[in-house]
Deep mutational scan, measured.
Amino acid sequence: MVQKSRNGGVYPGPSGEKKLKVGFVGLDPGAPDSTRDGALLIAGSEAPKRGSILSKPRAGGAGAGKPPKRNAFYRKLQNFLYNVLERPRGWAFIYHAYVFLLVFSCLVLSVFSTIKEYEKSSEGALYILEIVTIVVFGVEYFVRIWAAGCCCRYRGWRGRLKFARKPFCVIDIMVLIASIAVLAAGSQGNVFATSALRSLRFLQILRMIRMDRRGGTWKLLGSVVYAHSKELVTAWYIGFLCLILASFLVYLAEKGENDHFDTYADALWWGLITLTTIGYGDKYPQTWNGRLLAATFTLIGVSFFALPAGILGSGFALKVQEQHRQKHFEKRRNPAAGLIQSAWRFYATNLSRTDLHSTWQYYERTVTVPMYSSQTQTYGASRLIPPLNQLELLRNLKSKSGLAFRKDPPPEPSPSKGSPCRGPLCGCCPGRSSQKVSLKDRVFSSPRGVAAKGKGSPQAQTVRRSPSADQSLEDSPSKVPKSWSFGDRSRARQAFRIKGAASRQNSEEASL
C-alpha cells in the first residue's frame, strides 16, 4: 500500500507489516507532472514488484545509463575542470599563466611583423604560434561548454546555449574565428590575403580581455564609479562649461589675427588640448587678449579636469580597504559563530546551576481559565487552554471583563483591629484584591452614581456627606486619597496599604 505524507511526517506501520521504503516523488525527473509535487512517498516491500516509481530507473539526467562509479567519476571530473577554468585557485594559476604568456607572445610578434627589418623573421614564428593558440583556445572553449554542466542552470543543451551566450564566451568564439580567418588568408599569399590579415588581427587584441574572465577589475571599476557618480558628474560638468566658454572667448579674441583659429572647431581643439594639460603646441594664441583669457581659464579649468582622477584614486583606495575588511570579517565569522554555539550549549546543559530557565518553558505551562457563560453571564466551569493561546486569551478576557487571573496568589494580610475594612479593594481582606471592580459596581459605588440613583428620595436630598476616604477608595483603587487633616496617621497607613496592593496587582498582571 502506498501512502503520501504532505507535511513531511512518516506514518508508522503496524508491527506485523514489513519494512517501508521512503522516497520523494518530487525529486524523480521521470515522474508525471501530476505526481511531482514534492510529497513523501512511503511504499511497502511489494511496491517495487508492482512497478512503482521507486523501481523505475531514472529516465533523464546526465548519468541515466551509467554505473554509479562511472557517474561519480564523470561528475567529479566535470566539477574539477569547471573550477580550474572558471574559478582558478592554487596550482590552477599555472595554466592561466601559460595562456597569458601565449597571448602576450602573439601580441609581441604581431608588433614585430609590422616592422620591415623583422617582418620576415617574425612571420614564421607567428604562424606556428597562431596554430598553437588556435588549438589551445578551441579545446578550452569546448571543455568550458562541457564542464558547465556541473551547474544546475547550465545543464542540458539549453543550459549550454545559455552559457555560450555569456560575454566572455562570445569574445572567445570571435577571437577563434578571427584567428582561423587570419591563418587561412595568410596561407594564400596574395594582396587580398595581406589586407585581410592586417584587418582581422585587430580582433586578436581581444585575447587580452579574456585574461580576466571573472571580471573582477571591471566590477571594481564600476563599483567605484557608481559610488562616486555625483562627484564625477559635477566635476565633468563644470569642466565642460569652462571648455566651451574658454574656446569661444579665445576664438573671438584671435579671429582675423591668428590663422590657427579660423573656425570655432579649431578653438575647441585648442581648449581641449590645453585644459587636459596635453599641450601639443600646434595651436596657441598670439594676441595679448587671447593670452590673458587662455591663462585665466587654464587656471580654472585644469583643476576641474584633474579632479576626476583624484576622485577615482580615493575611491579605489577606499574600495580596496573595504574588501580587505570584508575578507577579515569572513575569516572571523565562522569561528565567532562556533564560539557562540558552544557558549550557548554550555549554558543550556549546565546542570549544576538552578537559576537557568529555558525560554520555551514559559509557554509550556498550562493555565486554568474560567469560561464565560453567555446565558447566565457569569464565569462557571474552567478548562485547560493550550500554551500557545494562553496569553492572547488572557488579554482578551481581561480587556472585556476586567478580571485578573493569576496562578498562585500571595497570602493577603488580615485586617488589623485598629483599621477596619474600608472597601472591596482595601488590600486587608483576603480574596478581595484578586478581582477588579466591574464597570457597573464602579458607577453605582461612586458618589455621582449614588446621587443619581437616589436623586428622587428625600434622604438623598437632606443627607450630605463630606468627601471621605471611603468614597475615594471606591472611585480609584490606584490613587492615594487626600487627607483632610494633617495629623491623621490612620489615613496615611491606609494610603500605603493601597499602594502596596496596587503594585502587587500590576506585577501579577505583567507576569500573566
Rank of each mutant, 00 (worst) to 15 (best):
W360C: 05
P420L: 15
I311N: 07
R213W: 05
L206P: 02
S113F: 03
R210C: 00
D355V: 03
G418V: 15
N350H: 09
L388F: 15
K283R: 12
I273M: 04
L268P: 08
H96P: 10
F329S: 10
P285S: 08
A265T: 10
D266E: 00
P386S: 11
H228Q: 08
D282N: 05
G271R: 04
I273N: 08
T217N: 07
S342L: 05
A253S: 12
S247L: 04
L292P: 11
F304S: 01
V225F: 09
G290V: 04
L200P: 00
N79K: 13
Y264N: 04
D282V: 03
R333W: 09
K283E: 12
G281R: 01
P430S: 07
L339R: 03
G159R: 00
I209T: 05
G313E: 11
T274M: 08
A178V: 07
T276N: 10
V225D: 07
F261C: 05
I205V: 01
F305L: 06
T359K: 09
R325G: 03
S122L: 12
G8S: 14
I278T: 10
Q341R: 11
A193V: 02
A235V: 01
G256R: 08
T276I: 03
M211V: 14
E130K: 10
L293P: 08
D266G: 01
I238L: 11
P335L: 12
A343S: 09
A294G: 15
A185T: 14
G215R: 04
M1T: 00
K255R: 11
H260P: 06
Q204R: 04
K319R: 04
E119G: 13
L318V: 13
Q188K: 10
W269C: 02
R214W: 11
G290S: 06
T263A: 05
P335S: 14
L81P: 06
A185G: 12
P411L: 13
K331T: 00
V250L: 12
R201H: 15
N350K: 13
L351F: 14
A253T: 04
F304C: 03
A306T: 15
E254D: 08
Y280H: 07
A337T: 06
R198Q: 15
D259G: 10
I340T: 03
H328N: 03
F261I: 13
T217I: 00
T287N: 02
S195P: 15
Y284D: 07
T378I: 14
K219N: 10
G290D: 01
Y154D: 12
A265V: 04
T194I: 00
T359A: 05
V175L: 15
A147P: 02
D259N: 10
N350I: 08
M208V: 02
R213Q: 06
G271V: 08
D212V: 01
W344R: 02
T296P: 03
A337V: 07
I278N: 06
L339Q: 06
S314P: 11
H260Y: 12
L243V: 08
P285L: 09
L197P: 08
D212G: 09
S358F: 13
G239R: 10
R332G: 04
S223P: 02
L203P: 00
Y127C: 12
T277S: 06
G279C: 02
L312S: 01
E231D: 04
R210P: 00
D259Y: 09
R144G: 15
R353G: 01
M1K: 01
R207Q: 06
G9D: 15
T114I: 11
G159E: 12
V225I: 12
G189V: 03
D212A: 00
P285H: 06
I278F: 07
S195C: 13
A306V: 12
A196V: 10
R333Q: 09
G301S: 09
L268F: 14
V182M: 12
R214Q: 11
L221R: 07
R353H: 10
T349I: 14
I340M: 07
N190H: 09
H96N: 14
D212E: 06
G279D: 03
V250G: 09
G222D: 05
M1V: 00
A267T: 04
A294V: 06
P335A: 04
L107F: 11
K230Q: 05
G281W: 07
W269L: 05
E231Q: 08
A337G: 05
G159V: 03
D172G: 03
K230M: 00
L101H: 07
C169F: 15
T114A: 11
T234P: 12
N258Y: 02
R207W: 01
L249P: 05
T217P: 00
L243F: 14
F104S: 12
K162R: 13
Y237C: 07
A317T: 14
Y280C: 08
D355E: 13
A306P: 07
F248S: 14
L356R: 13
M211R: 02
A193D: 13
V250A: 03
H228Y: 13
Q341H: 02
Y362C: 13
A309V: 02
S247P: 01
L307P: 09
E231G: 05
S55C: 11
L356V: 14
T263I: 06
G315R: 01
C242G: 11
V320I: 10
L351V: 14
R214P: 00
G301D: 06
S247W: 09
G281E: 02
E322G: 06
N190S: 11
S352P: 15
A265P: 01
R144Q: 15
R291S: 02
G215E: 01
R210H: 09
Q204H: 08
L206R: 04
Y284C: 10
S199R: 13
N258S: 14
A62V: 15
L85R: 04
